[in-house]
Design a protein around this nucleic acid. Structure first.
Length: 428
RNA sequence: GGAGGGAUGGCAGAGCGGUCGAAUGCGGCAGUCUUGAAAACUGUUGGGCCCGCAAGGGUCCCGAGGGUUCGAAUCCCUCUCCCUCCGCCA
């Protein structure tokens, strides 16, 4: 079926759950710093809307019944019926715009509500309150003064930031020589691993329409992070992650329950404006406008999504440890979680020059948040359509992984020995 | 970029102002027949929302959004997508 409708902007929270059980929702959303009052006013609006709906539908029912009779009528009877219908039409023309306005208002409020976090998500206002769940490995020991990745790139002719900046602006780069080969090896190594685990490899589109950004929950919240291309004619957006096209691959579709989980790994270049990060991580390739990434994505049964979340995390850990990194797993606190995630783990890798861990991957359980917006459902055993759960996780983020390889596996002479697991995939 | 043709239920495909949520075929499900299966036959087979404890009732949906009309799948406008031909092109 090609004439797919665009995503209906479904609200992300099930308003029925909110109606029946507002208190737990309020408590959970408070963790994400949503004022409970907001929920109350939303519910008040919803109540009013339902009353209006009932009125409008009753009038419509009357109108339909009378209209149906028109062909059989004639003369005076027909005239009085037409007059009655005119009155009904008048009443409806007053109520309907009112109802539409109220529904739009509710939808827009619902669209702004984040996904309530899971109980295991720590309280906290920002990244300082994230919780380290585990640490793996040990920091590399150097019997020389380790260089940072910028110095290593300089010495080995791996990077040209100046020409890139002159051409495209700050935070762009030309990568040269060995790291280029490492990236392709990383891609092959990770793809192989994931395919063996049953993931389907995907090369997705990276320019998408606005509704795709709403469907995946990046809009309205993170609008300023996204590049908008030719607003006047093409009106497309460059994705910041393959999560967007992977998720939208099943927008408006119903997946038979027995096919779940559906697991994909998508490769894409990712574009991020990094607005608001001026002056942060300005050196080298840690924070850039463009990088390549392999992203895992699961469509999953609601009962299985927490298990699936741990599964994605375990894959990320497997990759990190095979690459030989010293890393920690961080449980992101409520205040630092994005709107779509109910829970998120970041895996942070030790960066010697900074003497700290930096984020290399993250994986999120978005529960039904994206599925509701993008209208992705599964058919359960009773033949009922139900909203499913979606999850995503970084399998390999190119620039940061390359940076970590450079800094962690550098030698005294400034050369770098790439991880063993890449050897089979390295072009020489 | 230019010129045409389309979009209807899981699929195929009719309908082109009221009797149409929608013929018919295929597929799916249930049953009859059969030792079992196939075939044949019979029945059944979309979704959202609102009211209701429920039974049930109502409303909306024929790509999307608006409009005309007492009444729209059918008429008008805008948008999206698909197909064919020409041009261009990795």
């Amino acid at each position: 079926m090609y004439a797919r409708s665009e995503v209906a902007y479904l609200p992300m929270l099930d308003i029925k759950l909110l109606r029946e059980n507002p208190e737990p929702a309020k408590a959970a959303l408070k963790k994400k710093h949503v004022e409970p009052v907001l929920i109350d006013s939303l519910l008040a609006l919803d109540k009013e809307r339902r009353y209006l709906v009932t009125q409008v539908e009753e009038l419509s029912a009357k109108r339909n019944a009378l209209s149906k009779k028109i062909p059989e009528l004639s003369g005076k009877e027909k005239e009085t019926t037409l007059a009655d219908l005119a009155v009904l039409k008048e009443e409806l023309s007053e109520l309907e715009p009112k109802l539409k306005k109220m529904s739009d208002e509710i939808d827009s409020l619902m669209l702004q509500l984040p996904n309530p976090p899971h109980d295991s998500v720590p309280e906290g206002k920002d990244d300082t309150e994230n919780k380290v769940e585990k640490t793996h490995g040990a920091p590399p020991k150097f019997d020389f003064e380790p260089r940072d990745h910028v110095a290593l790139c300089e010495q080995n002719d791996w990077l040209n930031m100046e020409a890139a900046a002159a051409m495209s602006g700050s935070r762009f780069y030309y990568l040269k020589n060995d790291p280029v080969l490492w990236e392709f090896a990383l891609v092959q190594y990770v793809l192989q691993k994931l395919i063996k685990k049953g993931f389907t490899p995907i090369l997705p589109p990276t320019l998408v329409k606005e509704h795709a950004m709403f469907g995946t929950g990046f809009f309205p919240a993170d609008r300023n992070e996204i590049y908008h291309v030719n607003p006047e004619d093409d009106d497309l957006y460059l994705v910041g992650t393959a999560e967007v096209p992977l998720c939208m691959m099943y927008a408006n579709q119903i997946i038979p329950a027995e096919k779940l989980p559906l697991r994909f790994v998508g490769f894409s270049t990712c574009y991020r404006r990094e607005a608001g990060s001026y002056g942060k991580d300005t050196q080298g390739i840690l924070r850039v406008h463009q990088f390549d990434k392999l992203e895992m994505f699961s469509f999953c049964h609601p009962d299985k999504s927490w298990e699936e979340h741990e599964f994605l995390r375990s894959i990320e850990e497997e990759i990190m440890s095979e690459l030989g990194f010293y890393y920690q797993v961080v449980n992101i606190c409520g205040g630092d979680l994005g709107a779509p995630a109910a829970k998120k783990y970041d895996i942070e890798v030790w960066i010697p020059s900074q003497n700290q861990f930096r984020e290399l991957t993250s994986c999120s359980n978005c529960t039904d948040f994206q599925a509701r917006r993008a209208n992705i459902r599964y058919k359960d055993a009773d033949g009922k359509n139900q909203t499913l759960h979606t999850l995503n996780g970084t399998a390999m983020a190119s620039t940061r992984t390359l940076l970590a390889i450079m800094e962690n596996f550098q030698n005294a002479d400034g050369s770098v020995t790439p991880p063993k697991c890449l050897e089979p995939w390295l072009i020489s």
